[in-house]
Design a protein around this nucleic acid. Structure first.
Length: 732
DNA sequence: TCTCCCTCCTAA
DNA sequence: TAAGTTAGGAGGGAGA
C-alpha cells in the first residue's frame, strides 16, 4: 500500500506500466503485474505483485505466518521482533516537511523512508527468513519461492514422488468429480469431555510422539499396501478405492491370507515383508534424518549459524512428517486423497489411545485415572499423590504402554500439572513441571483467552494474572481484590485504550456472506468513504474499540477505530460492555470452577463509578455522533471532584473554594506535566530535538503505548482552558 | 429465551 | 492460477 503498490498505482495514472520495467524482462508485460484486489488467489496468499525474474517478498504477509501478534503494522513488528520503537507520521506531516524550504525538514522525510526500507530488511534478517526458506527448499527439493507460494501437498509430493519413481509407481490424478465421489471418512479422533474443575492433585500429561506418522510406519499403512475394505475382498469386479477403483482377484486374496493386517476400520493392508509401503518408508527416512540432524546439533553446540540451519532443517522434517497424513485425507482440495488409508490411520490412532486409557484406568496398582485426552494425549490424575510419585508412576505407565505398542509408536512423558484447571475440550491451564528437579513451575495455558487473539489484551492480561494469583496463593480473595481493582480502573476510564482494542483478520470486502455483521468490515466500509485506499489488505488485522452508544442499538454501531476514539473526546470505551461481556465471562469460566462468581464481584462495586466527563463546561463537540453519545451517557461531572453535577462545580466544592482552587490548580499542573513528559518521550523516539514543538507532526503509531497515553493526555490538556476559566471565576 | 447461522481462532 | 485435516468453543445477530 505504501511502497511498490503505491508507486505502481501512481505510475498507472501517468500511463506507465511499471511492473515490467522492474522486471528482468522489461519487454514483456505479460509476466509482471499487480494482482487485482478482487483476485481470489494471490491477494490473500503470497504477494499481490508478480515481477518476472524476481522473487517478490511481501514482508508483513511472511510475518503473519511466522509469528502470532495482535497487529502486523511495521511499527509493531519492529518493536516485537527487533525491540526498537519507530515513529509513524501521517502523509500530511511528511508532505509538509517535504515542501519545506530548509533541507533539514526534507531530510527528515528521506530518513523516515530509509528507516522503513532498512527496517524491512532487518526484520527478514532477524528471523532469518531467507536462510530458512532456502533450507526448506533444499530439504524438500523445491524452488525457493515455491516454499512460500505453494502448500504442503506440493512438499509431500516432491518427496513422495521421488521415492515412488524408483519403484516404478505412478500417482493417480483424480478428477474433481472422482474426488467428490470418494467415500466420506467414518472415523474421528478421540476427544474426551474433561471433568470440568480445578485439580489440586498432580495431573500427568503423556502424549504419543508423532502418533500418525508412527502408526503409518508401525502398521505399514500406505496407498501402495492397502487392499481396500474387507467387505470387498473376494469381489471379482473392481471395487471403489480412494478416488478410483481397485481389483484384486479372489484367488490372490486367498493366497494372501496370512500376509495381511486389518485396521480397526476394516481395511486390509499388506504386511511389510511382502511389500514395504512408500509412505512408511518415506516417513522412516524423514524421521531418521531428523534424529541425525538433532544429533549433529548436539555435536556442534558452539556454531550458532550451523545450529540455526540444523534447527530449521529438523523443524522442516517434523513438519513434513506431520502433514503426510493430511495429504491422504485431503478430501476437499486433495490431489490424491485416499479415505481408506486416512481412515485407517485415524481409527488405529483412536484405538491406540483408547487402549492406553483402559490400561491406565484398569491398573489398580497405579492408582491413576485418565481425566482428559485429545487425539494423542492423556491427562492422568493421581489423586492424593505427591509430585514425585506422579513422576515415578508416570514413567512406569509410559514404559508399560510402550511395551504394548509396536515400534515406533511411542508414548512420552510430557509434564506434570500442579495444580491445573480443565475447562472444556481443548481448553485448559495449569502450573507446569517438566522435570523432577524443577522447583518453580511454569504457567501454561491452552485454548483459553490468555492465548487467544480474538479478545482484547485486557482480557488476556487480567485472566493470566488472576490465574497466576490463584495458582501461587490458592487464595480466591486475593483474586477478588485484584479483579475489583481492575474493574474500577476500567469504569473510571483509566484503562489504556490499547488494552481495550480488539483486532480481527479482515477477509476482504467480498470475503463475507451478505448480511454478515463483522466489525472489521463495518469499519472498513465507513473509513473507505473518506479514503478509498484505506481498505485493509486481505488477512490484515483490523483494530477496533467498542464505545458507548445509544441504548438498544446493535453493538455493531458502537464499533470505532482506535484513531477515531483517540481523536474524539466524546467517545469513551464502553466500560459496562467490556466488563460484563468481555472480561467477566472468561474469568467466570475459570473461577466458577472454584466456586467464585466474578459477576457478583463486579456488582458489589459502588454504583457511583461512572465514565469520566470528557467536556467540562460548554465545549464544541468535534464530531457529529459525539453529541448524541454525550447526551446519553456523559452526565455532567464536577470539574474538581467528578461528582454528578449540572454545574461546572458541584455545590459541595463551591462551598469550600480554597481547597477547590488547590485541587483544580494541581489538576491542571498534572495534566500539563503528563502532556509535556509524554511529549518529550515521543519526540526523543521520533528523532526530534527537544525544541521541536509542532504537535500536529507527532508520531501516529497505533501500536505504541506511549503514543496512546500521550494522545489521551493531550485531550485532558485541552480541558485546561475551561478549567482555568472556572478557576479564575472562583478566585475572583 | 431459544435456536440457528456466521465468524473467528485455537488444539491436535 | 492454489488450496493438509477435523474438532471445538464462543460471541453476535436474526427470527421463531
Amino acid at each position: 500500500m505504501s511502497s511498490w503498490g503505491f508507486l505502481i498505482e501512481r505510475a498507472a495514472t501517468k500511463e506507465i506500466n511499471l511492473p515490467p520495467l522492474l522486471s528482468r524482462l522489461p519487454a514483456s508485460d505479460r509476466d509482471s503485474e499487480m494482482r487485482e484486489e478482487s483476485d481470489p488467489y494471490g491477494a490473500d496468499h503470497t504477494s499481490e505483485l508478480r515481477i518476472a525474474g524476481r522473487v517478490v517478498l511481501n514482508v508483513w504477509r511472511l510475518m503473519r505466518s511466522e509469528v502470532a501478534f495482535y497487529s502486523y503494522t511495521f511499527e509493531n513488528m519492529m518493536f516485537h521482533v527487533l525491540h526498537e520503537r519507530v515513529p509513524k507520521f501521517d502523509h500530511a506531516a511528511l508532505t509538509r516537511w517535504w515542501r519545506h524550504r530548509t533541507s533539514l525538514y526534507r531530510w527528515r522525510v528521506v530518513d523516515y523512508y530509509l528507516a522503513r526500507a532498512h527496517g524491512n530488511l532487518a526484520l527478514l534478517d532477524q528471523l532469518d527468513l531467507v536462510g530458512r526458506t532456502a533450507e526448506l527448499a533444499r530439504l524438500f527439493g523445491i524452488q525457493f519461492f515455491e516454499v512460500i507460494s505453494r502448500g504442503s501437498q506440493f512438499r509431500v509430493e516432491s518427496i513422495m514422488l521421488r521415492l515412488a519413481k524408483r519403484k516404478n509407481y505412478v500417482a493417480v490424478s483424480p478428477s474433481v468429480q472422482q474426488r467428490a465421489q470418494m467415500k466420506a471418512p467414518e472415523y474421528i479422533p478421540l476427544v474426551m469431555e474433561p471433568e470440568s474443575r480445578m485439580y489440586t492433585d498432580p495431573v500427568v500429561v503423556l502424549d504419543f510422539q508423532s502418533l500418525y506418522p508412527s502408526i503409518m510406519m508401525a502398521y505399514n499403512y500406505c496407498f501402495s499396501t492397502c487392499l481396500g475394505r474387507v467387505a470387498n475382498m473376494g469381489d471379482t469386479k473392481p471395487y471403489p478405492f480412494g478416488c478410483t477403483e481397485l481389483k484384486v482377484s479372489p484367488q490372490r486374496i486367498a493366497k494372501l491370507e496370512d500376509q495381511v493386517t486389518f485396521s480397526p476400520g476394516g481395511m486390509a493392508f499388506l504386511r511389510p515383508h511382502l511389500r514395504r509401503g512408500i509412505l512408511p518408508q518415506m516417513l522412516k527416512e524423514i524421521l531418521d534424518t531428523r534424529v541425525m540432524v538433532k544429533k549433529s546439533m548436539k555435536l556442534h553446540k558452539e556454531d550458532k549459524t550451523l545450529q540455526r540451519v540444523l534447527h530449521s532443517r529438523q523443524l522442516g522434517l517434523k513438519l513434513i512428517a506431520n502433514v503426510t497424513y493430511g495429504y491422504t485425507s485431503a478430501n476437499f482440495s486433495g490431489r490424491m486423497p485416499c479415505m481408506e488409508v486416512a481412515d485407517s490411520v485415524v481409527s488405529k490412532g483412536r484405538e491406540t489411545l483408547e487402549r492406553t486409557i483402559k490400561m491406565i484406568d484398569s491398573n489398580k496398582k497405579w492408582g491413576a485415572r485418565v481425566v482428559y485426552g485429545d487425539t494423542d494425549s492423556v491427562f492422568v490424575l493421581f489423586a492424593g499423590k505427591t509430585k514425585a510419585q506422579a513422576f515415578d508412576i508416570g514413567e512406569e505407565i509410559v514404559a508399560a504402554v510402550n511395551d504394548a505398542n509396536p515400534k515406533p509408536v511411542k508414548l512420552k512423558f510430557e509434564k506434570v500439572y500442579l495444580p491445573c484447571i480443565l475447562q472444556t475440550k481443548k481448553r485448559y491451564v495449569g502450573s507446569m513441571y517438566e522435570t523432577r528437579e524443577q522447583t518453580e513451575p511454569v504457567y501454561e495455558a491452552k485454548g483459553i483467552e490468555t492465548v487467544r487473539r480474538d479478545g482484547c489484551p485486557a482480557v488476556a492480561k487480567m485472566l493470566e494474572k488472576c490465574l497466576r494469583i490463584l495458582f501461587e496463593t490458592k487464595d480466591v480473595s486475593k483474586v477478588k481484590q485484584f479483579t475489583q481493582r481492575q474493574f474500577r480502573k476500567v469504569l473510571a476510564g483509566n484503562a489504556s485504550v490499547q488494552d481495550l482494542t480488539f483486532a480481527r483478520e479482515f477477509r476482504g470486502v467480498s470475503g463475507y456472506k451478505p448480511g454478515a455483521m463483522v466489525p472489521a468490515l463495518e469499519l472498513t466500509r465507513r473509513l473507505t468513504r473518506a479514503d478509498r485506499r484505506a481498505v485493509p489488505r486481505t488477512g490484515e488485522r483490523v483494530p477496533y474499540v467498542i464505545v458507548y452508544g445509544e441504548p438498544g442499538r446493535p453493538l455493531i454501531q458502537s464499533v470505532k477505530s482506535p484513531a477515531e476514539v483517540l481523536a474524539d473526546p466524546g467517545m469513551r470505551p464502553n466500560a459496562q460492555y467490556y466488563i460484563t461481556k468481555v472480561i467477566v465471562p472468561p474469568l467466570n469460566r475459570c473461577f466458577s470452577l472454584v466456586g467464585a462468581d466474578v459477576m457478583a464481584w463486579f456488582l458489589e462495586l459502588p454504583k457511583v463509578s461512572r465514565p469520566r466527563l470528557t467536556g467540562v463546561g460548554p465545549r464544541p463537540s468535534t464530531s457529529k455522533g459525539s453529541g448524541v453519545i454525550l447526551q446519553y451517557f456523559a452526565s455532567h461531572h464536577c470539574a474538581a471532584c467528578d461528582a454528578l453535577s449540572t454545574q461546572p462545580l458541584c455545590d459541595a466544592c463551591r462551598s469550600r473554594p480554597q481547597s477547590t482552587v488547590l485541587n483544580l490548580g494541581s489538576k491542571i499542573r498534572a495534566w500539563e506535566r503528563a502532556c509535556s513528559d509524554l511529549g518529550k518521550i515521543c519526540r526523543a523516539c521520533a528523532g526530534f530535538d527537544a525544541s521541536y514543538q509542532y504537535q500536529q507532526d507527532a508520531c501516529k503509531s497505533m501500536d505504541c503505548p506511549v503514543v496512546y497515553r500521550r494522545r489521551r493526555a493531550e485531550l485532558d490538556a485541552e480541558q485546561v482552558e475551561s478549567v482555568q476559566a472556572i478557576l479564575d471565576n472562583l478566585m475572583l
